[in-house]
Amino acid sequence: MTSQMPERILIDGKPHLLHALPLYRLLASRRVRISAPDEWTTNCHRQYVGTWDVIDGKLCLVALSTYGDRERPLSDAMRSWFLRLVPATRFPVSAEWFSGHLRIPTGPMLLWGFHGWSSWFTRERVITCRRGRVVRDREVDTLAMLEWALRRCEGLKQRIDPEDTRGELLTWITDDDYEHLRGDWWPPDWEGQRIPTSL
């Protein structure tokens, strides 16, 4: 497995990675796919990237792109097809089909995972939705959870790295919460007004 390209979400006007697939159940229930027009890539098996926002307490899809060898805006035909599928007349689209949890990393990365979204971050925001409406929004201290688990598993450190004499099992990859969001990160056809000018 390869680490997957996450979805995106705006939270309080700031861009974040989204480790959830709000479109998955809708597409699976209709037995349809969004396919990239070019070469398929292992870091985005689903072949699309959605950009999401919470507007007036509702989860909304504000942009959608295909992702093959690179990210591209939807063609006019695919955009019309998707809006008929949802159904909606234009973006943003209220995600009334989605019930579940949205995992949003908000702290620095602790441990990097090479498959799916298995990396650990110091903190995560978890938003719970029911039929597209936000019913719970909480901050989770994942660093504290990991430290608790390590304390509970006596001897785990020696089994993982017997040469570690400093007692430092955790490795900090970056101290900058937004380092992974720098650069050309937004969809190619993004027309939103809330793009931050600097991170």
Rank of each mutant, 00 (worst) to 15 (best):
S75I: 05
S75P: 01
M78N: 13
M78T: 13
M78F: 05
S80H: 10
F82L: 11
P87C: 08
P87Q: 08
R90K: 05
R90T: 08
P92W: 01
V93I: 12
S94N: 08
E96G: 14
W97T: 02
S99H: 04
G100R: 02
L102P: 01
R103G: 02
T106E: 01
G107Y: 00
P108E: 04
P108G: 10
P108W: 00
M109W: 01
M109S: 06
L111W: 10
W112N: 11
W112R: 15
W112C: 13
G113H: 12
F114A: 14
H115F: 14
H115D: 14
W117C: 10
S119G: 08
W120V: 06
F121R: 03
T122A: 09
T122K: 13
T122N: 02
R125P: 03
T128V: 15
C129P: 04
R133V: 15
V134E: 14
V135R: 13
R138L: 07
T142I: 01
A144F: 09
L146F: 12
R152G: 10
C153Q: 12
G155R: 04
G155F: 02
K157G: 07
R159V: 05
R159H: 07
I160K: 08
D161I: 00
D164W: 02
D164E: 08
T165H: 06
T165N: 00
T165K: 07
G167N: 03
L169F: 10
T171Y: 12
